[in-house]
Amino acid sequence: MNIGLDLGYGYVKGVNDKGKKILFPSIVSIGFDRILSGIFNTNENIVDNMYVKIADDGGEKSYYIGELAKREGFSDSFMLDTEKYNQSEAKALLATATALLMTDEDKIINIVTGLPLKQYQTYRKQFEKEIKQYKAIVSFPEYNLTRIVKFDKVIIFPQAAGAVYHALMNNLDKYMIKDSYIVLIDVGFKTTDYVVFLINNRLRFSPDLSGTLDIGISKIFVALDKLYTQKTGSNTDTEGLLSILENNNIYFRGQYIDFTKELNILKNELARLIKKSILNSLKDKYEKVSTMFVAGGGGKDLYPYLKDAHANVELVKDAQFANAYGFLKICQMQQDIA
């Protein structure tokens, strides 16, 4: 089986070549046996209710992952450490996502995943080695499901560059304008990657024009946390902040508190910072850009505020999964070559 997996700071996005896709928050907490879970959670989707036991070289540990960690975890915060890729929590996300995308018949697992451009050159080999050597027994006790996770072929690819494969996949000829440039902006939770390609008979990656910005949707989270306290005199958790971001409001003491105005201001300012940085990087090459693509879960949220960055700005189809689908395409292409 081939898997494309985007281990984002905010969400894990995964797809396989059998058409299955998964999405859950990148939140990991220590887990405990839940005695009453069998009474109340029998009809819940496994992705929304992940109590997981993982046995690897470090022994067996229990975790709440994703939505369950957000609701009931000892820690409900996202993983924002720059070097998270060598941490046990990151491996727990990797193992859990892979187990969910596997079936009992899958004995060979090929995977492509990615790193932000800023980290790619430094951490690529280390991350690839760790995944190749990784083996775990992953079980979901409440669903009587166990998988053995190990990888046969591993490729680490730059984020955003993966999304380009997805953006161009179905209509490459439309964008093959000689001597022009294509830009893809991938807005994530902690970072924003932007990649630039020169069209010259084929796509040529332009590393000097591409980069990673240390800004993403988490900037809005920080501001929302302060605004919530100002409006209510109280504090909220990650689940509450996500609710505000998704719904523009939150229920508090018998009424809905509206954040629409504040969110519009915050999103517009974040988009302005992103546009300014990318335009400064492109300089005179901006005049030769034919298309700017916007991808990522954050890109989906910010697209209305990024549309004026260029005369031709397109939101990538299924933007939150753009890297995962691009990684899957790369995985399949490598298998065809082999």
Rank of each mutant, 00 (worst) to 15 (best):
V294C: 05
I337R: 11
L172T: 12
Y134G: 09
D258Y: 13
S37H: 09
L68H: 10
I220Q: 14
F221G: 05
S290G: 02
Y175Q: 00
L328V: 04
I35Y: 15
K288A: 11
R202W: 15
V15N: 04
K135Q: 15
S180F: 04
K300D: 11
M333Y: 13
G240A: 08
E239H: 12
S77F: 12
Y85T: 06
G296L: 01
F321L: 03
V183W: 13
D179F: 05
Y85V: 06
V112D: 13
E67D: 15
Q119N: 12
Y228W: 08
G254D: 07
Y63S: 02
S88Y: 07
E83C: 01
R34W: 02
N264Y: 10
S180R: 12
K118M: 05
L172S: 02
S77Q: 14
T260L: 04
F40M: 08
E72I: 02
G162F: 01
K18W: 09
A163W: 04
L227N: 03
L270F: 08
F327A: 00
K13S: 07
Y181H: 07
R202T: 15
V28W: 14
E246S: 08
S37W: 11
I278G: 07
F78P: 14
L245P: 11
L266I: 13
Y11N: 03
I108G: 02
L282G: 12
K267G: 00
I131S: 03
T146D: 02
I244M: 07
A309P: 10
A311Y: 15
V313F: 15
A55Q: 10
K226Q: 06
I220D: 14
L115P: 04
N2Y: 12
Y120A: 00
L270N: 09
F327Q: 05
T103Y: 05
A322T: 08
D225F: 00
Y325V: 02
V195E: 09
M50V: 04
E60K: 02
G66R: 04
D318E: 12
P304E: 05
L80A: 03
L315P: 09
N201S: 07
Y143M: 00
